[in-house]
Every structure is written in structure tokens, then in C-alpha cells.
Simulated scan of single mutants.
Amino acid sequence: MLSTDGLRLLPWSSPEGKPCYVSGDGTGYVSRLADEMESTQLDMSAELLGHAADILADRKTTSAQLRFLAARMAEALRDVLRIAESRGARLPTPPCDDLDNVEDNDEPISERDQ
């Protein structure tokens, strides 16, 4: 497996379909381009999700339209997962590596509790 320490997974692949990475402090041209592309991908995914709700609510939607929607949703999900992987890999490592021995004082809050 390729070590990616200090590397950022980019939101595009090589022509061969392999992952692309950039090294740096996140302020360079390629990093800014990746930020813009990720933002566009997330916006497009949100727009597609709204469109999907409309299509699924329409009883006149054809099977061809549903297949097309499913293909676009799969592409959007692939983009969003790649963005999540890239951003997650850049999060700082918690100071305690043994999370089993950390006391959990977090309590979930539901919407009605707020």
C-alpha cells in the first residue's frame, strides 16, 4: 500500500484511474484548484439530491429516467466519499492513540432536546 503521509488525495484520478495526490501546506495552486473542485462536486451532489426527490415523487418517471438518476447518484456518492476520505486523512491525530481507555462524556443531543 502507498504511504500517503503528508499527501492530500485529490478529487480527480489519473487517466489510468489511479488516485492523484499533492504534497504541500495546502496553499498552492493545485490545492486551491482541488478545493474549488471539491466545492463544486458537493454543490452538484446537493442539487442532484433535490432533483432525485422530485423524480422519485413523480409517478410518471420511467425506468430509463430512474437508471439515469441512479448512475448520476452513484457518481455523486463516489465524489463525496473521495472528498470525505481526503479530508479525513488530513485531520490531526488525536493525542491519545488508545481510544478504548478514554472516558466518553459525550451525550447525543436530539433535535427535540434543543
Rank of each mutant, 00 (worst) to 15 (best):
L2K: 04
T4L: 05
L7T: 06
R8M: 04
L9I: 04
L10W: 05
L10K: 07
P11I: 02
P11L: 04
P11D: 01
W12Q: 08
W12I: 07
W12R: 08
S13E: 12
P15M: 05
E16W: 02
E16H: 03
G17K: 10
K18R: 13
K18V: 01
P19F: 02
P19H: 03
P19N: 01
C20G: 00
S23E: 11
G24E: 07
G24P: 10
G26P: 12
G28R: 06
V30W: 02
S31F: 09
R32D: 07
D35Y: 06
E36V: 03
E38P: 01
E38C: 15
E38M: 15
S39A: 15
T40I: 08
T40M: 12
T40E: 09
Q41L: 15
Q41N: 07
L42G: 00
D43V: 01
D43T: 08
M44R: 10
S45R: 06
A46C: 03
A46E: 11
E47R: 09
L48K: 01
G50L: 07
G50A: 00
H51L: 08
I55W: 00
I55R: 10
I55V: 15
A57K: 06
D58I: 06
D58M: 11
R59K: 13
T62R: 11
S63G: 08
S63M: 12
A64F: 10
R67Y: 06
F68C: 10
F68R: 13
L69P: 13
L69W: 10
A70L: 13
A70H: 13
A71P: 01
E75P: 01
A76S: 15
A76K: 11
L77S: 13
R78I: 01
R78H: 13
V80P: 04
L81H: 08
R82Y: 04
R82G: 05
R82C: 06
R87E: 07
G88D: 00
G88A: 01
R90Y: 00
L91R: 09
L91K: 03
L91E: 04
P92M: 02
P92L: 01
T93N: 03
T93P: 00
P94Y: 05
P95R: 10
C96P: 01
D98S: 12
D98Y: 04
D98E: 08
D98M: 06
L99T: 12
V102S: 05
V102F: 01
D104K: 11
D104R: 09
D106F: 15
D106H: 14
E111Y: 12
E111G: 04
E111K: 09
E111D: 15
D113V: 06
D113K: 09
D113N: 13
Q114R: 15
